[in-house]
Nucleic acid binder design. Structure first.
Lengths: 202, 202
DNA sequence: GTCTATACTTAGATAGAC
DNA sequence: GTCTATCTAAGTATAGAC
């Protein structure tokens, strides 16, 4: 079923992710995608019934990959109970680290750019960048506070700041010529200053 | 020279700002803009020589407005010397408050969406969202620290977090159906927790 | 599943009358 | 400066042979 050299459908999606995130959906033509894959535009229609359908394929790829790397609720609780507090909070970001999962970030960037005119993209973006991370980080923070491992803080405000920081870093990371990695580390360090451990540092 | 009812050129730019930020440059047609202004598409070409030229007009509007509201270096120093520290830092954001200068934020949003394929937009965005605010806030923070009005902090890290937070809030503010105002206040409160005044609170 | 050829549509831009 | 009419280019998508 899976002929690795031959899975044209997957290669179309991969190339579309690269190109849509680097330029923007409307400025990437079916001919562009076909050329990157090494086929003719008409052949794309053997795999996807429209350009919009390729975008659907892109979002499906994200969902599948996310399902594979998402920490389980049990793992999150374990983190909150035993890992160093700052690390526990950091773990809630999973696919946001610009160093990992670059393809995932590219897809989120595409979804943002489509948000203005495509409802599906808007909801996808909301779900993955705002709702889910806020839920994860919120659970970890509440657990850390209730365990007395960190000093109490305004969790809602923290979550907003954290979410917007991630949001900014995601979008920033695909501006041509910008390397967001050091900035990600810097910003994260500043953000985690807000988490004050009650335990002695090693 | 300025016939307020009749300055079609300015009305074209205003409508273009609304429409480009709500949808995205490529999905707004010359016919759309003309219809919003109340003229025919061909008439746009009496005011601008191309669609791209309208975008130039949009950025020029931003530059002119920014020049009018930018605090002077002297005003910033005065802020750092006398205003409550958190307020002084907050003042470095000037046109980022989602409650004010909505048109400015819309223009920044347009520039972001164009960044992938338009160098001028990319440089414009970099200048106004990253370089200038970082310079302003950095100067205020260094002044506050050197005056002993706040406890020392890692200014570089703080600036990264601050810049990305603003960046996120700007972009977020034009996602349809999202009201960013309360979140802006929440995130800003969290961010300013990192600024610790050495003076007694009122 | 891929190709060539082409249909169809839309968008940016121009010509020229008023 | 605005209009109607129109040109031209480009992009999505289809038809039908191999």
């Amino acid at each position: 079923m899976e002929n690795p050299r031959q899975d044209t459908k997957a290669r179309i999606v991969d190339n579309a992710v690269q190109m849509f995130s680097a330029k923007n959906y409307e400025r990437v033509t079916m001919r562009d995608i076909a050329a990157a894959v090494g086929i003719k535009a008409a052949s794309l229609y053997s795999h996807f019934k429209s350009k919009d359908d390729i975008l659907t394929g892109v979002y499906e790829l994200f969902e599948e990959t996310a399902a594979g790397i998402r920490p389980s609720p049990a793992a999150l609780i374990a983190m909150a109970e035993t890992a160093p507090p700052k690390q526990a909070v950091g773990s809630a970001f999973f696919y946001f680290r610009p160093t990992d999962h670059e393809k995932m970030l590219r897809i989120l960037n595409i979804a943002y750019m489509m948000s203005g005119s495509d409802r599906r993209s808007r909801e996808f973006f909301q779900r993955h960048v705002f709702d889910a991370p806020r839920l994860y980080a919120g659970n970890i923070l509440r657990k850390l506070v209730s365990l007395g491992r960190i000093e109490p803080l305004d969790i809602e405000n923290f979550l907003v700041l954290q979410t917007y920081f991630c949001f900014g870093a995601i979008l920033r990371s695909f501006t041509p010529g910008v390397s967001v990695r050091e900035e990600w580390e810097s910003g994260l360090n500043a953000l985690l200053e807000l988490i004050r451990s009650t335990e002695q540092e090693h």
